[in-house]
Design a protein around this nucleic acid. Structure first.
Lengths: 128, 128
DNA sequence: GCATCAATTGACTTTTACGTCAATATTGTT
DNA sequence: AACAATATTGACGTAAAAGTCAATTGATGC
């Protein structure tokens, strides 16, 4: 495992711009170390970026993604904070289960459309 | 099944604004009938609106949702068109499967965090 | 040590998906 | 028919998530 990645290495790997990565840093999602002014990304930063992009694919906003990635940090030490966090986690899970159901429904409908296309093609095959 | 819904009935049912519905119409996603100038939404329009909002929850853009809902219409009559549509359908399905995987991964990670919280709470219970 | 190439910063712009508001029209009710 | 309530249209505004561009700064090869 490499110690550091440059910003351009990550832009190429994930097909995003430097502007995007800097934007995520400005929003507090990611915090690479610096050598002088230059950003150096640790494997953990790269992993975090992967998680951010995963959240994007699921349609979460930057703010929502921020909430999620904050959860991945060490759990708080105080009981009240812990219970609050667990509540937040359950809320996110509920959102994710809803999305999963939406996906299943959409996939089922697309399957039906696909079937109809196949049938239609068969009819055409018979008629020509 | 009712014959028609007014725009405000739909805004209340789906918790969206009239502006949003008119926007979807402008974008060609939905096409209610008119009595004079007033829009009247058939059950099929209401159903389409449901599908649009489902697409939104999954993070699809209006353009992408448009592609999907066009697929629900009657399949084209020409073989070439049919094959093209089937290709598009498979692309959407691939996107949806990716999203589903993203969800499973995120859920697994949140489960792990939740476990850690439970453990941490147990430790606190012992110590106090 | 100097050129050059990559990286940073800040400012401004763009696109998407609506929100807001004012002026006008339509509908339902009494 | 009058009038309140609801709907439409058009124009302009806005927040989020970057894109673009120009001016510097820093790093690297020779």
């Amino acid at each position: 495992m490499r110690e550091f990645y440059t910003i351009t290495e990550l832009t190429r790997e994930f097909d995003i711009s430097t502007r995007t990565i800097r934007f995520y840093e400005d929003e507090g999602l990611i915090r690479p170390v610096r050598r002088g002014r230059t950003r150096l990304f640790r494997p953990s930063d790269r992993h975090l970026l992967k998680q951010i992009l995963r959240g994007k694919r699921l349609g979460f906003s930057i703010a929502e993604i921020n909430e999620i990635v904050q959860m991945y940090k060490d759990p708080p030490g105080e009981a009240g904070q812990l219970r609050l966090m667990m509540k937040r986690i359950e809320e996110k899970r509920a959102t994710l289960r809803q999305k999963r159901k939406d996906i299943e429904d959409t996939l089922a409908e697309l399957d039906a459309v696909d079937e109809a296309c196949i049938e239609r093609l068969a009819e055409l095959g018979v008629n020509t």
